[in-house]
Amino acid sequence: MTETLDGPRLAPASGGPARQLVIFLHGYGADGNDLIGLGREWQHLLPDAAFVSPHAPEPCGMAPMGRQWFALTRLDPDEYWAGVRHAAPALDAFIDAELDRHGLDDSRLALVGFSQGTMMSLHVGLRRARPAAGILGYSGALAGPEHLDAEIAARPPVLLVHGDRDEVIPVAALQIAAQTLGRAEVPVQWHVSHGVGHGIAPDGLALGGQFLGEVFAVPAGRP
């Protein structure tokens, strides 16, 4: 049985119906409350967007108050690959339900992930039948890069942002992901935040908001 996900939501700041949907996917040991604040930061850029940040389906083994998309016993590529495959059906079902809730299709969807949530965003977003408007990944990695060519179904624009002092997922993961996506003909951009560890710095936050405005074709300077 597929786990039913839920989490905090923000309605469009415009007060009208949603014209875009942004789904945040949090990192290991956090929950949906960890990223929903990014929606408040970006509401002025995307006044017609609905934001939702689901709690991952499992209690976190290493942080009992938090959640996990999949278990981690070590920073191991095989564990990443098994984990994203295990968690994908629940996330796909949640995406479908949220799009249906707002009467939108994948072309009006953006996935925004952090760390383990970036792994989920890239895994699911590149395998859906129709491409999303975009995928924004912070401090994450592409799980199972060797499997992408055989499984890719969609090529939405991707922006990857990473700190050069990340002590959890080294910045080299960004380069591997960007190179793999580029070879798969996915339009990918990337940015390294200097002096930043495993987190989101102001420059990455600003670039992320700009990226979402571009993929959703929101007029620049719109209040």
Rank of each mutant, 00 (worst) to 15 (best):
D105T: 14
E185L: 14
A184I: 01
A133T: 07
D96P: 01
D76N: 13
L136T: 08
G140D: 03
S193H: 12
S107T: 12
G32H: 02
I23M: 10
S193Y: 07
T4G: 05
D100M: 07
E79I: 02
P89L: 00
L148I: 13
L126S: 08
F94S: 04
V84S: 01
H191M: 08
I23Q: 13
D100K: 10
H198E: 06
G125I: 07
L126T: 04
Q68M: 06
G221D: 06
D34K: 00
G7P: 13
L111Y: 01
R222Y: 08
E167S: 14
P156N: 12
R165D: 14
Q43D: 08
H44V: 07
G29Y: 14
G61H: 09
T4L: 03
A133H: 06
H162R: 09
A88S: 09
G27H: 01
L38K: 03
D149N: 06
I169L: 15
T2V: 14
A150L: 05
D105Q: 03
I200A: 00
R127P: 00
Y80W: 12
V215P: 06
M65Y: 07
C60M: 10
S107A: 15
I176M: 12
I95P: 07
H198Y: 11
E185P: 07
G213A: 08
C60Y: 12
A177R: 05
L207N: 04
A141Y: 06
H44Q: 09
H194V: 15
L126W: 07
D6C: 11
G137I: 08
A177S: 11
F94V: 12
L160W: 04
H44E: 03
D76I: 02
A88W: 03
H147K: 07
L91A: 08
C60N: 13
L38Y: 11
E41F: 09
F70I: 10
L45D: 13
I176W: 08
A110K: 08
D100F: 02
G144Q: 03
L46G: 05
D6N: 14
A18Y: 08
R128T: 11
R67S: 11
H55C: 03
G163C: 05
L126Y: 09
R127S: 02
Q116P: 01
A63S: 13
V186T: 10
A153Q: 08
R40Q: 12
A201R: 07
F114Q: 05
A178M: 02
D166K: 03
A82D: 13
A56C: 06
P219M: 10
A88P: 02
R222C: 06
R155Y: 00
G140P: 00
L126Q: 10
S193G: 15
R130Y: 02
D34R: 04
P57E: 12
A30T: 06
M119C: 05
R128G: 03
F51K: 02
